[in-house]
Design a protein around this nucleic acid. Structure first.
Length: 293
DNA sequence: TATCCGTGGGG
DNA sequence: TCCCCAAGGAT
């Protein structure tokens, strides 16, 4: 569990984090569990720099789960702005409602209670339990996965989905001490975000470069199953994005506005129907839609 | 398990 | 320019 070589690895990463960690609003003493949870929702597939201003505005407006729960989903979607994947705003609102109903308005501490909330999966539950409450959990995000697959397994990039072997590695490396484990989680994540990046890793600045098996092996290129990029041009996602952008701009959107923004009739209708079904829009009158009130 | 779900910046 | 990808989750 804490073999000497593992201790050395821990110390190197923890020392590096101590001097190189970014000061982020959802870290430090002032950060509330709610602030941490909001950040984790926003950071799902969205870069830190884009989250910062929205996170600040969000917490100013809704300082506690009950504040958000008392407001409309439409306002949550509007405040979400252009972070992308607006269903996350819906889920965060639903999570706030559940926190009020089931946990007396306090973000729950246990992994099981957290993972039961809307929009909270294994990663987010572990992250909140670890970052907000200092607990010992394996926190496997894309950064940690990349760091571990390189340092331990000697490969450039992890497989498309988390494997059992990966989780075993992460579990074996997790420090036994609870607060140390929590710092280890955020430190390995930070290392992946700042140094052991996907494209041009800054191995010169890496605290564990001498112990990295990928580096020792001469940086062999990724040879796993093909990583399929997601199509974008002409997709429903693009169409939905256009419609939601219009809906965010004003009080409502007309059929003519939507038609001007997306000429393909069938797809436009399908996306409007889908957005309503998802709860991202409501039809206020025939041929007019708005963010849900 | 594979696919769907937004948006924008950097190499 | 084009392509990749950024603290995932739900189905």
């Amino acid at each position: 569990m804490d073999a000497p070589e593992t201790r050395a690895l821990h110390d190197a990463v923890l020392d590096w984090y101590d001097t190189h960690a970014r000061e982020l609003p959802w870290r430090g003493e002032a950060a509330t569990p709610w602030s941490v949870m909001v950040s984790e929702f926003m950071l799902q597939q969205t870069p830190v720099v884009r989250v910062l201003p929205v996170h600040a505005a969000w917490l100013e407006r809704w300082p506690a789960p009950a504040d958000l729960a008392a407001d409309t989903t439409g306002e949550a979607v509007r405040m979400w702005g252009r972070l992308g994947y607006p269903r996350r705003a819906l889920r965060l609102h639903a999570a706030a409602v559940a926190i009020v109903e089931r946990h007396d308005g306090e973000v729950p501490r246990s992994y099981d209670d957290l993972v039961a909330l809307p929009g909270v999966g294994d990663y987010t539950a572990s992250a909140v339990a670890s970052f907000a409450f200092g607990q010992r959990h394996v926190v496997l995000d894309t950064n940690v996965r990349r760091v571990l697959v390189r340092a331990v397994s000697g490969r450039e990039l992890p497989a498309p989905a988390v494997t059992r072997a990966e989780r075993d590695v992460a579990t074996a490396l997790l420090p036994a001490d609870e607060p140390t484990a929590a710092t280890w989680a955020v430190a390995t994540m930070e290392l992946g975000a700042l140094v052991c990046t996907a494209r041009r890793p800054a191995c010169d600045a890496c605290p564990i470069a001498t112990e990295c098996r990928w580096r020792a092996a001469g940086f062999p290129a990724y040879d796993g199953p093909p990583r399929r990029g997601q199509a974008w041009d002409g997709t429903d996602r693009q169409c939905r994005g256009r419609i939601m952008a219009l809906a965010r701009e004003g009080d409502s959107v007309s059929a003519d506005q939507v038609a001007a923004a997306w000429p393909a009739t069938d797809q436009r209708e399908r996306c409007l129907t889908g957005l309503v079904a998802d709860g991202l829009l409501t039809q206020v009158t025939p041929g007019r839609w708005a963010l849900p009130g």
